[in-house]
Every structure is written in C-alpha cells, then in structure tokens.
C-alpha cells in the first residue's frame, strides 16, 4: 500500500508503465520550457534574497543620493526613490520580505486548508457539515479586507502579516483537499486498507494523502503566488512592518509621485509580477508533469 497508484492509466497500447517516476517526472517538466524559465527566474530571486547583504554595500533604508534620480543616471541602475534611497538595493532586499512572508503564509494556508479539507472529506457527516460551515463563513468575508483588519488590530509585524494572509486564504485549499479526499476514499485500495484494519490516521496520512498530492502540489504553487500578491497589497497599503523593505512598500511610499517619477512605482511592480509569474509557470509545469496526458489538448 506504500507505492502510489496514481490515477489509473487508461487501458490501451499507449499506456506504458513508467519505470522511474522521478526521472519521468523531471523529463516531463523539462520539456515545458516556460516552466523551466519560471524555475530559473524563481531561483535567481531566491539567490538574491539570500545573499542581499553580501552583494550590496548599502542598506535599503540609507539615503544615498538625490531623490528621484532616474534609472541609469549617476550609476544608480534603477534610480532612487522619494527619499533618495537606492531602488536596486530596495528591490533586492524586498525579495526577502516577499519570499519569507509569501512562503510562510502559503505554508500556513496549506496546513489549515489541508487539515480542514481532509478531515471534512474523510469523515463526511457532521464533521464535514461543521467544517464546511466554517469554510463558508470565511468565504463570505472579503479576504483582503479581513487581512487588513487583522493586521491593523494586532501589531503590523511580518509574522502577523503572514498569519493574517494564511487565515484569509485557506478556503480554496480546503475545498480542493475535501474534494480529493472524498473521491479517493471511495477507491478500491482505500477500501482494501480499511478492510485489513488500518486505522483512520494511517489511512489519511499514508494511503489517501500521497494520492491526493499531485493536485495539491500544483495548487500550492498557486497559493504561494496568491500569498505574495496579498503581502504586496498589504505593504502597499502601509499595513505591514514599516521597518522591513518590501516591494509593495516601495510602491506605497512613492505612489504620490507616480506621474513625476513613474519608475519608482512601475519597477517594484515588475518585480512582483515576475515573481508571481515564475511561481505560476512552475505550477503549470508541475501540472503538466503530473498529468502528461493533458498536454495533448
């Protein structure tokens, strides 16, 4: 029961047994050039975030030159902002906040969503009823508005922001996990596991979860993208840690000067855009690699 019978391949001459799933998976992934590009961009961003203090001489909050120096002038590749801070430095440091908050918020989203979804989908009945009411409740509240309220009511620190994002975005994961668990729990190998007396915990974690993983992993990429966008929106609105440089914050700080110094607003936006794009391309690549048959369409 430990090997993973993924969705049963249709019978037919082309249903070839894959011998080394990991190798096959990578082969399928590498075939999708956009997904590879997404991975490279994402890796570059992670690298920049990790080594920011090593690469850069100044602090992102240091005022280094005349405010609103256009990109490329006086040796400032991306120019300076309203307080004369180096935009390039700010962008590189901004990757840290984005990745830390985006990553931990997405992690939280997945933990909450997976727990609620899997319990609801596995136990059905009143457990499902109660958990789905809770999910519905969170679906009714506009997520960003709730996140704004949560951050404002408590302290505007990075952990608060990450928790707030996690609390408002888990409903999609929960619905997906519930649907997958409801589908898989009816399959033969789960019945088999139950018939040999496996306990619920074992069935949930060792039998169903591995089979529910592919769509959840693809969804995780989406979740990271959404978390990054939420972090950007919150820091843009000034509802994040004021002592941490982030892309949304740069835009928020400079929004009043949009018409005079458009680069201070558009360039950090490009950074957000590219990061989320890279993450969703990775998600698409994973999806294709998990479901090679879908590529034919």
């Amino acid at each position: 029961m430990t090997d993973r019978p993924t969705t049963a391949p249709e019978s037919g001459p082309e249903a070839v047994r894959v011998e080394r799933p990991v190798v096959e998976f990578l082969r399928m992934y590498v075939r999708n050039w956009a997904a590879v590009a997404g991975f490279i961009v994402f890796a570059a961003i992670v690298f920049a975030a990790l080594f920011a203090p090593v690469i850069l001489a100044v602090d992102p909050f240091d005022m280094v030159w005349m405010p609103f120096t256009p990109p490329g002038q006086d040796g400032y590749i991306l120019g300076t902002d309203n307080l004369g801070r180096d935009m390039f430095t700010a962008i590189v440091y901004g990757a840290r906040a984005t990745l830390v908050v985006g990553g931990s918020a997405a992690g939280l989203t997945i933990v909450i969503g997976l727990t609620i979804g899997s319990l609801a989908g596995y136990y059905r009945g009143w457990v499902d009823e109660v958990l789905m009411r809770i999910t519905e409740f969170f679906q009714v509240l506009p997520p960003l508005l709730l996140a704004m309220v949560l951050v404002a009511l408590f302290e505007p620190t990075l952990p608060t922001v990450a928790i707030a994002i996690g609390v408002v975005t888990w409903t999609g994961v929960a619905r997906l996990a519930r649907a997958e668990f409801m589908r898989i729990r009816e399959l033969e190998f789960v019945k088999a596991a139950r018939s040999i007396g496996s306990r619920d915990r074992r069935i949930i974690w060792r039998v169903i979860l591995p089979n529910a993983l592919p769509p959840l992993i693809v969804n995780a990429a989406l979740t990271v993208g959404i978390a990054i966008l939420f972090e950007a929106a919150l820091s843009f609105l000034g509802l994040s840690d004021p002592n941490v440089m982030s892309w949304g914050k740069i835009i928020g700080d400079n929004r009043d000067y949009l018409l005079d110094a458009p680069w201070t607003v558009t360039i950090p936006g490009v950074a957000i855009f590219l990061t989320v794009l890279a993450v969703s391309l990775i998600g698409d690549g994973l999806n294709d690699a998990f479901n090679p048959r879908l590529r034919e369409r």
């Binding site: 993208g225 843009f236 835009i251 929004r255 558009t266 936006g269 989320v276």
Partner: peptide
C-alpha cells in the same frame, strides 16, 4: 490568464 493572475491590481492600475 497567466499575466492577469501575476499582475498585482494596484500595479495594473498605476500602469
């Protein structure tokens, strides 16, 4: 669809 998902709405607005 990819671009629409990845672009933060305030950035689209500023552009």
């Amino acid at each position: 669809a990819l671009v629409g998902f990845a672009a933060p709405v305030f950035w689209t607005a500023f552009l």
